[in-house]
Design a protein around this nucleic acid. Sequence first.
RNA 1: GCGAAAGUGGCGGAACUGGUAGACGCGCGAGAUUUAGGAUCUCGUGGCUUAGGCCGUGGGGGUUCGAGUCCCCCCUUUCGCACCA
Length: 838
Amino acid sequence: MEQDRQDVYSPGEIEGKWQAAWDDRGTNSFTEEMFRSAQEPFYNLMMFPYPSAEGLHVGNIYAFTGADVHGRYQRLTGKAVFEPIGFDAFGIHSENFALKQGVNPMDLTPKNVANFTRQLRRIGGMFDWDHTVNTSEPDYYRWTQWIFVQLFKAGLAERKEAPVNWCPDCMTVLANEQVINGLCERCDTPVEQRRIAQWFFRITDYAQRLLDNLKNIDWSETTLKAQENWIGRSEGATLKFPVLATTTEGPEGPLPPGVTAWVPAEGTPPISVFTTRPDTVNGATYMVLAPEHPLVAEITTPDRKAEVEAYQEEAAKLDLVARQKVDKTKTGVFTGGYCTNPATNQPIPIWIADYVLIEYGTGAIMAVPGHDQRDFEFAEVFDLPIPRVVAGPGDDADTPLEEAYVGDGVLVNSGHFDGLPWREGARAIVEWLEKRELAEPQVNYRLHDWCISRQRYWGPPIPIIHCDKCGPVAVPEADLPVVLPRLEDFKPDDSGVSPLARVEEWYKTECPECGEGARRETDVSDTFLDSSWYFLRYPSTDHEDIPMDAEITKRWLPVDCYIGGEEHAVLHLLYARFITMALKDMGQVDFEEPFLKFRKHGLIIREGAKMSKSKGNVIVPDPIIEEFGADTFRIYLMFLGPFAEGGDYRDEGIQGPFGFLHRLFDTVVSAIANSQPDTPPDPQVEQKLHKTIKQVSEQIPNLQYNTAIAAMMEYLNAARAGGRQAVRAEVEALVPLVAPFAPHLAEELWERLGNEQSVFEGANWPAFDPQKVAEETVKIAVQVNGKLRGTVEAPAGSSQEEVESLARAQENVTRHLDGTTVRRVIFVPNRLLNFVVG
RNA sequence: GCGAAAGUGGCGGAACUGGUAGACGCGCGAGAUUUAGGAUCUCGUGGCUUAGGCCGUGGGGGUUCGAGUCCCCCCUUUCGCACCA
């Protein structure tokens, strides 16, 4: 048979043709009417990219393709699928790059966005280009600022001076989440601590809800675990240790040098500590305050002052890397002060040490060296007593401790609490101390408030005006957006304030309340605020005067399926949940979890490492799409491995999917040319087809794209086996089946099959016939003592007798049965027959 | 240290509630067609083998007629968190 030129699969032509057709026909775009009336709305969201100057990389394409496959599948099953994409264009990434290149981010960003848009169109995503967002545009960040104002009004935004992570290279404050092992996540510079006035969102108010709701959402298990760990709930108690004055006269028994009497210190509040092990309080032989603890100065005795202050200074200078080194030998200084252990009533010395962190709990601990390894190490260095108060199995009250014992056990050396299992002991001791107002049950969270301000340029100005009379006042909503001015000099400096603070004509303003001269906040907000609500904006981008249309939001949100990278498991996802919850409490939305279902995708590995510029193993997508087409590239990426786990990118591997699409094209085109529409399918091929439909239909919703593709390849091989000519009825259903993966090719074949509408509008997801999936004959394994000795073919549902007689007819089986006694026969219908012989 | 996931051919990876390990693809081998090809198409491809089998899913035990899958111990790798009291 001769094929004319037109009938050779040429992805370049086909893809250009269909991308243009989708645009012209508005195949993927929603109208206002569609938003309001869609019957089965399905919001298919993927994490929007930061538009880098390098363009889309394979990791982006992998993620978007996987999400797009899912969206296209949902659409083929009849849902109205809204699949938007946008650009996370504000932030330090863009700003740093602009600084390096000596260009203005206001000029650079639109170029990058245009390039990303071009590339995103090329990969054939089902994106609604009429509803995109760009976080750096005033029509978007107007509403980012609006959200800030809402939180401010609700008392959830507050300004406080706080020790913050300062990156001396980026010259900005970082959130705890952006500090990786004490290094800046962007530039790997050791982070320092500074005290600056900062804006915080009170996410900790929502800690328990953020934790509780995890039970009600369908997310990847690992992501839920990550969130849970990040929130870090721990249950325990605060215990109070009254402070003793140490300079009073009148000796009473043996006292440490410098101490003349034990009397309560007048006017000094007791020191609170948080502990998860109140049962061990009898073993608390000393107390440790963080060097920054506010009571240090008050407690320190004059003779210790110099040493204590030197240590405080040292600790402040230490960057977080050095401070957080776990294997570092414990250091610390005795303050000269004492307090009373509320359980033993004994005086214990108060130390300061940098292993106690000011930001967690109360910034002070009761040190129980016998049952906390850190305290143990400290006590060893400074030769402090290490009593045992919990006895494990086989221990008694005097068993010496080689290291801290943290296992199960019963209390010892704890007065009338001796003998209680530790959990019960904890409860009893707290109750007992509570009566004397020295204890209180307490829950603590590792989660910190979200530091939202950045002393940078490339972000939304925080919409606050500082007035000497009225304090911080929100910019009136009618005056939003507070437009980010174009600055030629936007380089951050060491001053601790944003470059915007250099522009007097920008920050000078009037107080919206009293009309006096006032000053705009010059800090900008964290990029994570931009991305914490973008999914709320997408369906409402046609509405300029409101952040979101209530009716549309009600119909389309929460998001039905969100797909993104595991690297955002704690940062972005937690912030988005928090903002949504806060908006719910303000009555702005009627749901509190934004993402009903979240699935993470894996990473693409190449040459044994994650693709990155520094490793030099990056694949630039454009030439590959040029050579093989987007459809092939999409299939190749989805075929690498399970989508949730990522895959190993090997350059030669793309030949397989390329060949598959070639064969698919040829097979369908020649079936159209060479068979009548009503030619019946070969029964065996038809059966295989129904099995394939079943498999693909089950695997796509589970994101098992690799096996779905394998199933289609297998089917195509079967339909063409031995060079046979497939008929139309055998291949027609393959077109919608492959459409989520290779949308351009599917459209082309769908059209050649004589359809006018897009395959995504006109086709139904093929159904399989359960009758046809059922096997008529089955291959049954025949084993002797569990070892395979043959297989027999038998009608499905054959009885054990029938199968057994077939099996015994096989020479290879009888040979193994000869001279033995069959003791038992195991029969699994349609699967296996096992002779157990002795 | 804590938490999570994972170890299967030369490689990426399949394998439903325990039931023929290695689907699909890459690579490799043989052949066909071709002036030629890094093109296309067919067939083959876990190892060993005395050709009957034997051995094989990180290692070692166990349960079972039967284990990649279940149980116990150990090893390795990757990722996340990490002095959080």
